[in-house]
Design a protein around this nucleic acid. Sequence first.
DNA 1: TGGCGAGTGGGGAAAAGTGGGGAACTCACC
DNA 2: GGTGAGTTCCCCACTTTTCCCCACTCGCCA
Lengths: 147, 147
Amino acid sequence: MAGFKGHAEYSVDSKGRVAIPAKMRSALNPDANSTFTMTRGFDKCVFLYPLDRWKEMEEEIGSLSTYDREARAFTRRIMMWADEVTLDSQGRISLTKQLVEFAGIKDKAMILGAFDRIEIWDPEAFEAYLNEESADYETLAEKVMGM
Amino acid sequence: MAGFKGHAEYSVDSKGRVAIPAKMRSALNPDANSTFTMTRGFDKCVFLYPLDRWKEMEEEIGSLSTYDREARAFTRRIMMWADEVTLDSQGRISLTKQLVEFAGIKDKAMILGAFDRIEIWDPEAFEAYLNEESADYETLAEKVMGM
DNA sequence: TGGCGAGTGGGGAAAAGTGGGGAACTCACC
DNA sequence: GGTGAGTTCCCCACTTTTCCCCACTCGCCA
């Protein structure tokens, strides 16, 4: 299964709906059933996991202990924001008010392919994130990939 | 079986009833028979375990030794608060006075999906919990999931 | 230049949440 | 044993939100 690639700035209509770029839709595994689980991302954005990938995540979460304080805190934080959404016949999903608010999304959204997930950002917030990241692309590559 | 997800602030009516969000109801295993065992949670909230999951919990509790002082204390504390509740035809449950009082719930309740259980908080108490947790989401994720 | 696929927008039906009325049941007190 | 107050439970009705479907426009490709 190919990873999600590319980026696009789309509009968010008055009902909180955003289109998912056709390229990303076609990269969806049929197992995902046109369905995503969307949750609060790391950094100020929304993560969109295809259903099949999310199932794997749930297994990890399910293996955490209820009796461990930090595990409880993490489980609450990831699950409370989660919501299952299905593409409508136009290839859109509707964002929940809660996540729209969290990510500071207004009438435009930046849709980002990020390998195993899709990310949705407020365009300005994304711009700001790119600027504030101290390390540039080349430096990051060195650090992360150990080149 | 998918875990419970999402969060919502709902009202508690004069009869102590709270609606369970439709999304969480549909995540219920049919085996649970629209029934929960509700008990005092860890942290200042109420835990709501679907019947099928609660059965597993009871097995764990049952396997504890009667001869161990702490096991006895734990068994008492978890069982003394437990009560079985069933959804009414409107998808609501009624909270017992004891648990309402314990969790400090007034006329509003925060309903939280927390994977294998549903949690019910007083909205202010939940806010306070989120603030007092020192670690932020990203740090927690790193620690707990080792990402 | 016509057709198809992609993105955008809105209207109507159905479902979800909220609140209250009334029957049945319990318990206490006369 | 009967009466009455207090609970509990079940059902009905209203309001708001959500979801599903249809219609339009724009741009690309044949």
